[in-house]
């Protein structure tokens, strides 16, 4: 019995050696140089933002488990507090309609991907994160639905692959933050909702002239522009 237990532990140890575990500490976003938008927003984080784990089997190599913890929640909390004059983070049971908010923002994560040096044939880890930001007016109508694609890349160091992957993930989050600071208001027209307006004063995006399908025009308008160049 004793020998079986030892063999079992040895087997678990050997299998454990094939999994690369990376745990990310919540990133700190530096105080940005920006003009704050004077309005009151609510932020409703999805439950997965409190503990997000990405697991992936890299074909022919090893299994990776990347624990982002509450990094995403921390990122959006810090960022929105810098961007807006008043930010309320809602609990799951809170009803935004009963609160004095100009707008409600719902961030979510559509995809998390990464590549290892072995896959890219370089000495770098790369991380792609695709967030989605939904903006609602004070009446609860969806006024913008913006996909934000972010990218981070970090070269392997003497500290090992885990450290490089963590840095790449943090750089991807900073990249997302930079993009949101630059484009958030241009894309979502959220500042038009200040003071409780129920719809943006200006159109979110000019409809494509060649499009005739009414539903397609609406989808385009809601998704907003995703022009990411500086």
């Amino acid at each position: 019995m004793h020998r079986t237990a030892l063999l079992g532990l040895l087997l678990i140890g050997m299998l454990g050696g094939c999994v690369s575990n990376v745990t990310l500490k919540a990133p700190t976003i530096p105080e940005p140089l920006l003009a704050q938008i004077q309005m009151s927003v609510g932020v409703r984080m999805p439950l997965e933002f409190e503990h997000y784990v990405h697991e992936e089997m890299v074909y022919g190599h090893e299994e990776w488990s990347i624990d982002l913890g509450r990094s995403n929640a921390a990122l959006f909390e810090q960022l929105f507090k810098y961007m807006f004059s008043s930010v309320t983070v809602l609990d799951p049971d809170d009803d935004p309609q009963l609160m004095d908010l100009d707008a409600l923002i719902e961030p979510s994560i559509d995809a998390f991907e990464f590549s290892t040096p072995g896959q890219s044939n370089t000495e770098a880890f790369a991380v792609w994160i695709r967030y989605r930001l939904k903006v609602f007016d004070s009446d609860g109508n969806l006024v913008s639905n913006w996909p934000v694609a972010a990218y981070g890349k970090s070269q392997t160091t003497k500290m090992g692959g885990s450290s490089a992957l963590q840095r790449a993930a943090i750089l991807a989050m900073r990249d997302a933050a930079a993009l949101m600071i630059m484009k958030f208001d241009n894309v979502t027209r959220i500042s038009d909702l200040a003071g409780g307006s129920s719809a943006p004063k200006s159109p979110l995006l000019r409809p494509k002239p060649e499009t005739t399908d009414e539903s397609e025009v609406r989808t385009t308008a809601l998704e907003g522009s995703s022009d990411e160049t500086g």
């Binding site: 530096p30 105080e31 140089l33 990249d175 930079a178 500086g230």
Partner: peptide, 14 residues
């Protein structure tokens, strides 16, 4: 880069 965030990030740097 931190002191001038976000204007010298890889995406935004001139």
């Amino acid at each position: 880069v931190d002191s001038l965030f976000p204007w010298f990030e890889p995406r935004t740097a001139p």
